[in-house]
Design a protein around this nucleic acid. Structure first.
Lengths: 167, 167
DNA sequence: GCATCTTCTGAACACCATTCGGAATATTTC
DNA sequence: GAAATATTCCGAATGGTGTTCAGAAGATGC
């Protein structure tokens, strides 16, 4: 049973992959797909939750079906340290799904989902109201080719194909 | 029982909100929080799945715990139509979580999660190999303030605070 | 105001998650 | 290398929960 550098064996990766794509099968059915009995699957899943590998099990909502048809990434450029209280307050909007501080020519990147362009405009107006905000750049999604949760797999190829310093 | 413009009443929104934040409670417990019996909750949830409001119920993995410590948004600028086959092939990498075509000064926005900077570099090298790709800009996340799935709520304030054309 | 459709509730059932002892396998230790 | 320990697994039993059903309550339409 060879273990990954992250303490996961092949069955673990397969299990996490299956669970991340749908946690509605019974443990017996899942077990059949990985060659384990139901209690064995249960034990492993319990461990994933205890160790934090599985953060939560939750329902994925369809954005369009709940009034969030428009997706946009908003880059915010601000003077000084970007993480102001006013910025953190944006997290209270259900329209704001992600907020990251980034390296690059923007201070923060927001992923927001609004009902339409008007609501996005209103949200942007709110952002511009902050005194420290200098510029925002919005990238409105025209079509989403792919959107999925964190995947279990890793590409070995990417780990190998790196430039090795010569000694 | 007043219905939203999206065919959802107050209980629906509350239910979807609860389920999107954790689908591990029993129907009886959930029902208690919204003032419904277990079978009633079950019926509504079944309807959400049938109508596509709930896309799936799945486990959320911790990126760091599965070897994806680095988060980056990659903007790809390409000549011609961005959605080439080579670009679509990137979806096969578990490191690529999102791919959108956007309006703005970039053609596509990718959300990628790699083990480290080396793996990101290898992925970028792969992108640059495409003949149509002109430029890429990467925004590496230094810290993630907020990251959560699609929320059920909508901010009424954003709908109201829009500029009304005068007639 | 009556008929129809929808949605709820409580009880009954069937299924599945969960627990447990014991066997098999890996890991450590001497 | 073999004994000792720890880990992981399976099969069977059980308690809890999802699920179904019939009937009541409510909403909707004519």
């Amino acid at each position: 049973m060879p273990k990954d550098p992250h303490g996961l064996d092949a069955i673990d990766r397969k299990l996490l992959g299956l669970l991340s794509q749908g946690a509605e099968q019974t443990y017996a059915e899942i077990g059949k797909q990985v060659g384990l009995s139901a209690p064995a699957v249960h034990e492993r899943v319990k461990r994933y939750k205890a160790t934090g590998r599985i953060k939560s099990v939750s329902a994925q909502l369809d954005p369009a079906m709940t009034g969030k048809s428009l997706l946009a990434f908003v880059h915010v450029d601000s003077t000084g340290w970007g993480k102001s209280q006013a910025m953190l307050d944006l997290c209270n909007f259900p329209e704001v799904e992600e907020m990251h501080t980034v390296a690059g020519d923007a201070c923060m990147v927001l992923k927001v989902r609004t009902e339409n362009t008007q609501a996005l405009e209103a949200l942007l107006a709110r952002i511009y109201d902050m005194p420290e905000v200098q510029t925002t750049k919005s990238y409105v999604a025209l079509s989403t080719v792919l959107e999925r949760p964190v995947q279990a797999g890793i590409t070995e190829e990417l780990r190998e194909k790196t430039f090795q310093p010569r000694d």
